[in-house]
């Protein structure tokens, strides 16, 4: 009755609320953990100690060179048709403005197509994108590519409607990318409310002028670490089931939801298994990635270092889409492996969480999945996720200890059972 024992300990027993309480202690005291920041390195050192004190095995840090970008002071003010202070968050990797800022007329567009049609109007202006929110993966293209597309048509800066499914005047940051051969222009996100307001103004032919000031700077890459701990396998210790979340966050809020929750239910999975005195046949390895938000930098380094052992990886798991109430497991792998995962998930019938869906991919495990290793991501109730994502609102207040208990139970049962099976998951 291993699965029932894990569920009972996590959801009803002594371990209930533990992952929430551990997470709160870290994010309340350390705060946000931006790549390259002292906070992130402090969090890594604390986690290193935590994992050792928890009695996990082979606790160690694997060095990674990571980006160091800081937003500095930033502001935006609408000067025409009226004075209005605009809430902004500079986007990760953006350059800053000159100290006096950029003051320019605004061109509002709702899509890249409209920008192309109105390219002749964009030169010398600040392009404001008021793209509708469709879903994250589609709409986020405006955040990542908005500055490049605006620069191609001669814009001085770009302001992008936050990629959020709901807003109470919250700007949401995130990474953006420049392109070789295209001038770099400052770029920031604005609130849904301001993007829509400027769109309405523009539709009435009203001239809008904004002064944008951003003190963003990119510094040389810095040293960081992926944080690793294990329960070493009893029979096939060289074989691995990897469970993971990322420890870094953006520099706003507390990074409690993204991805403190994922990191801490991954730790909790190993804690639960250890507390029950279980040791699976193959190794359960916890990895807390660094610099995921900068584009999976720590995960790439880990893959480069460990891909030589790829044939020994049975399953790679990542939780990076919230730890609200789980609804199932997203899985990528062969049909045979999927059939096995469906059997594994049937053990979670007591929690009524048995679905195995497609698309197990995640930023930090994609390198392995693309190379043929089965991969799984936790699927949970995403309704609120993009309310808070990359915003000042990503704090412990968003988190629910009971939902984290259930998420940790799912994570522990899946990782343990796959690690304890006589054979590795079959590959395609």
């Amino acid at each position: 009755d291993v699965a029932k024992a894990i569920i009972n300990l996590a959801v009803y027993g002594k371990a209930q609320n533990r992952s929430y309480e551990r997470l709160a202690l870290l994010v309340d005291t350390v705060g946000p953990r931006l790549s390259g920041s002292k906070n992130l390195e402090k969090a890594i050192q604390i986690m290193y100690q935590n994992l050792q004190q928890d009695g996990l095995e082979k606790v160690h840090l694997e060095p990674v060179r990571i980006p160091h970008w800081e937003r500095g002071e930033e502001s935006a003010v609408m000067l025409e048709p009226r004075i209005h202070k605009i809430a902004i968050l500079g986007l990760g990797s953006s350059i800053g403005t000159p100290p006096e800022g950029i003051t320019a007329e605004v061109l509002v567009v709702t899509s890249f197509d409209e920008l192309q049609r109105r390219a002749s109007e964009a030169r010398g202006k600040i392009v404001v994108y008021n793209q509708p929110y469709i879903n994250y993966s589609r709409t986020v293209q405006y955040r990542t590519q908005g500055a490049v597309e605006a620069a191609k048509v001669g814009a001085l800066a770009s302001l992008i409607r936050s990629v959020a499914s709901f807003s109470i005047y919250s700007p949401h940051t995130g990474i953006q990318e420049y392109q070789d051969g295209v001038p770099k222009i400052p770029t920031a996100c604005i609130t849904v409310e301001d993007a829509e307001m400027m769109s309405r103004m523009a539709s009435h032919g009203i001239k809008i002028v904004i002064q944008l000031k951003m003190g963003a700077k990119t510094y040389p890459d810095t040293d960081s670490f992926n944080t690793v701990a294990e329960i070493t396998g009893s029979k096939y210790p060289e074989q691995v089931v990897l469970v993971s979340g990322h420890l870094d966050s953006w520099d706003v809020g507390q990074g409690a939801m993204d991805d403190g929750g994922g990191a801490f239910i991954s730790w909790e999975a190993l804690s639960l298994i250890k507390d029950l005195g279980l040791r699976p046949k193959r190794t359960l390895r916890l990895v807390l990635w660094t610099a995921e938000e900068q584009g999976g930098v720590g995960a790439f380094q880990y893959y480069q270092l460990h891909k030589v052992n790829i044939s020994n990886y049975s399953l790679v798991m990542e939780s990076d889409a919230g730890t609200f109430l789980p609804t199932g497991l997203q899985f990528t792998g062969s049909e045979k492996a999927r059939a096995i995962m469906e059997e594994v998930m049937s053990l979670l019938q007591p929690l009524n969480i048995t679905q195995v869906l497609s698309h197990g991919e995640g930023t930090d495990i994609n390198f392995w999945i693309q190379a043929g290793v089965p991969g799984a991501s936790l699927l949970d109730d995403l309704y609120k996720y993009f309310f808070f994502h990359h915003s000042h609102g990503d704090t412990m207040t968003v988190m629910d200890p009971k939902q984290m208990n259930v998420a940790a139970a799912v994570w522990a049962v899946v990782s343990y059972v796959v690690a304890d099976m006589e054979e590795m998951l079959p590959r395609s």
Binding site: S334, E422, M424, S428
Partner: peptide
């Protein structure tokens, strides 16, 4: 034999199902 690198298992799916069910 634990390693199943080529997706070729020496065990039947029924055997694997029973193994997983024993964890329930």
């Amino acid at each position: 034999k634990a390693i199943c690198k080529n997706g070729i298992s020496k065990r039947t799916f029924e055997e694997i199902k029973e193994e997983i069910a024993s964890c329930g």
